[in-house]
């Protein structure tokens, strides 16, 4: 239930990012926000830095090599406040990601959600969950 609530919350956050909030760092118009693509790959890098965190993953290119995907997430603060730690992903981790791909077709996209090696599903960062009543 708690996870469902979190997912719903992230879905709202994602919609707001897509809708052009007053506070987003920049546009997300270059991503096809109506299209979702699922990829399975291996983490190459997870640079935890502003203005945005990027998840770099390698996927098989079908020719014996790999393709490197650059997946954009929120700012580190947005990730921290939605339950992320930079240690949750490290080089070599196998992950499944759902992304909004770049319209240009280049191997890049906006991360929608990622399934961590331990099965936990995490979003791209967004506003923190509302305070708990009575907290």
């Amino acid at each position: 239930m708690k996870d469902l609530r979190r997912l719903l919350f992230l879905a709202v956050a994602v919609m707001m990012l897509g809708a052009g909030s007053a506070w987003a760092h920049h546009s997300f118009a270059m991503f096809d926000l109506e299209k979702e693509v699922t990829l399975e790959g291996v983490v190459k890098e997870f640079p935890w830095a502003n203005p945005h965190v990027w998840l770099q993953i390698l996927t098989p290119d079908g020719k014996g090599g790999t393709t490197e995907w650059s997946l954009e997430m929120g700012a580190p603060g947005m990730l921290t406040r939605t339950g992320w730690k930079s240690s949750m992903l490290k080089q070599g981790d196998k992950v499944t990601v759902v992304i909004n791909p770049l319209k240009s077709g280049a191997p890049s996209g906006r991360l929608v959600r990622v399934t961590l090696p331990n099965g936990r599903v995490m979003g791209p960062g967004g506003p923190p969950p509302p305070p708990k009543p009575g907290a």
Binding site: H25, H26, S27, F28, A29, M30, F31, P47, A49, N50, P51, H52, V53, W54, S70, E72, A75, P76, G77, T80, R81, L102, S108, P128, P131, A135
Partner: peptide, 23 residues
């Protein structure tokens, strides 16, 4: 009021990717 939150560090020029970010 959000005493449960902290204002964190934000140095915007750290990891800019203007080409990928589309601006």
């Amino acid at each position: 009021r959000r005493p449960d939150l902290e204002v964190l560090e934000y140095f915007c020029d750290d990891n800019r990717r203007p080409e990928a970010e589309g601006h």
